[in-house]
């Protein structure tokens, strides 16, 4: 399994990461190594196997829809890098 530098750059964009030229080279090699290792999964025929996404057979855990105490805005905002009144401030999105 091989992966190209272009693919690495595309995936980095999807993951909202950026890399230096040297990092892209290193990551391309390391990801190729890891992907060729995990390719051993293809030795197994899984065409009739249900996937497991959760280790316990728990389904739909319901509870009453009740109003309960929640985090006050002051606490919810206490770690915000930038805030104004009760809002998180982000860079302008709409041009």
């Amino acid at each position: 399994m091989s992966i190209t530098k272009e693919e690495v750059l595309h995936v980095a964009h999807l993951a909202r990461l950026e890399f230096s030229e040297e990092e892209v080279t290193r990551f391309t090699e390391q990801l190729a190594d890891i992907l060729s290792y995990v390719a051993k999964l293809n030795e197994l025929d899984t065409s009739h196997v249900e996937p497991t996404y959760h280790a316990l057979k728990l389904t739909n855990v319901f509870r009453e829809d009740e109003v309960k105490e929640s985090l006050p805005p002051e606490k919810a905002l206490q770690n915000a890098p930038e805030r104004e009144d009760n809002f998180f401030v982000v860079p302008k999105v709409i041009k």
């Binding site: 999964l41 996937p51 497991t52």
Partner: peptide
């Protein structure tokens, strides 16, 4: 999906 199917086999 493949890895999750193998997860079933391991379990």
């Amino acid at each position: 999906k493949k890895a999750s199917q193998v997860r079933t086999l391991i379990a």
